[in-house]
Amino acid sequence: MPEVKILEEVCKGCGLCCDDVCPVDILILSPDTINSSGYHPTVVTDMKKCIGCGYCYMICPEPAIEVYK
């Protein structure tokens, strides 16, 4: 099962990965968590759906996303 790990402290909450990049649409900007830089980091809504394509990692400018398989 592929798994996406978001490094919350590195994420700047730009939302590039949340738009239409994820083919299974499981990434959203967290409405209630906030990191020490003051950004709302990306969170995964349903890890079971992840296909491990790595598109989120590709578009992430930081990179704050790691993909495991």
């Binding site: 730009c14 790691e66 398989k69």
Partner: peptide, 21 residues
């Protein structure tokens, strides 16, 4: 679990000071 995508060794661990996006 094997890491297939992650921060490459060509980058340092410093968090980049660019604007979001």
């Amino acid at each position: 679990m094997k890491k297939i995508f992650g921060r490459p060794a060509g980058l340092t661990e410093i968090i980049q000071r660019y604007c979001p996006g």
